[in-house]
């Protein structure tokens, strides 16, 4: 299915839509992998060259999805580590158009599924529809916007789906049944499940009740579930096998690069890839 074909049926309550490209991609990969991997970079941090080497490293280690974050001055869903790196990029004067150019180049270079993560004001100033059109044009598969709630940002969710792009919605252990159903039906691509309170950056303890919460979200929605926030390494990823479909590794990667450099990232990613029996 080509992005841009008419997926959107107006009028009907249930927006029965055809499978998005990214949904098909995930479905196929699920057949051959224990768990899919999504890794994260803040665009421009510490610099574009390091971003690119990290992405190359992700690619070589079989990462399935890459989440690239466009920095924002007021990232409320992020903890201290990412707050500082968002700010550091902006202090260098990096603009949204440069970020988009970088993403476009990465999409061309690596046959991995790319998503853009950012805050709603970035889309809003660019023009929500124009931003999504741009994503589609450069081959981005979807977006993740943590401060765009379902009921406030319908234009964003509906237009994304209409254009064949995922607008990934977010669920938490505090999203109860009815809300989960809305999260599943308004969002698309997959559900980003945040397994605890708080912001990015601190460790999550993947205890039994946390895993039970993820399972329950999966049962209720029947959707693909990606779990992010606080994954520290291969051990956490392994714990998620059989529960989550996708493991998202964010701030830990920045920590590894900052403390051990790209060679440290190499070892870290090797261990992660081992979870799927790959090198």
């Amino acid at each position: 299915m080509k992005a841009g074909s008419h997926l959107f049926r107006k009028g009907g309550e249930d927006m029965q839509s055809e499978q998005l490209q990214i949904e098909k991609y995930i479905e196929d990969l699920k057949k051959s992998k224990n768990i899919l991997l999504m890794t994260h970079q803040i665009i421009g941090y510490p610099d574009f060259a390091t971003n690119e080497l990290a992405i190359e490293c992700f690619y070589r280690h079989g990462v399935d999805l890459i989440e690239l974050q466009i920095p924002f001055s007021d990232p409320v869903a992020d903890g201290p580590l990412f707050v500082k790196s968002n700010q550091a990029v902006l202090e260098k004067g990096v603009k949204v158009t440069q970020c988009l150019e970088f993403v476009a180049r990465m999409v061309k270079k690596y046959p991995v599924s790319f998503l853009i993560m950012t805050y709603y004001n970035i889309l809003y100033q660019y023009g929500v529809q124009r931003f999504i059109d741009k994503c589609q044009q450069i081959g981005v598969q979807g977006t993740i916007v943590p401060d765009a709630p379902l009921d406030e940002a319908r234009e964003y969710f509906d237009y994304s789906r209409q254009q064949g792009l995922a607008a990934v919605s977010i669920a938490t252990p505090y999203s109860f049944e009815q809300r989960l159903q809305e999260i599943a039906s308004v969002g698309s691509g997959f559900i980003y499940y945040v397994p605890r309170k708080g912001v990015t950056g601190s460790k999550t303890n993947f205890a039994d009740e946390v895993l039970a919460g993820i399972k329950s979200a999966k049962n209720i929605t029947g959707a693909t579930i990606a779990v992010g926030f606080g994954i520290q390494g291969a051990e956490d990823v392994a714990k998620l096998i059989g529960t989550a479909d996708i493991a998202i590794i964010g701030s830990k990667i920045q920590r590894v690069i900052e403390s051990e450099g790209l060679s440290g990232l190499e070892l870290f990613m090797e261990a992660i890839a081992g979870v799927n029996g790959e090198e």
């Binding site: 001055s73 007021d74 409320v76 902006l90 949204v96 004001n121 970035i122 809003y124 100033q125 401060d147």
Partner: peptide, 21 residues
């Protein structure tokens, strides 16, 4: 200022053309 979304609400913010405050 221009219309923007930040700090949990939509209002007039002093921001640049990218939407950075």
């Amino acid at each position: 200022a221009s219309v923007g979304i930040c700090q949990g609400y939509k209002t007039l913010f002093l921001q640049d053309e990218d939407g950075q405050m």
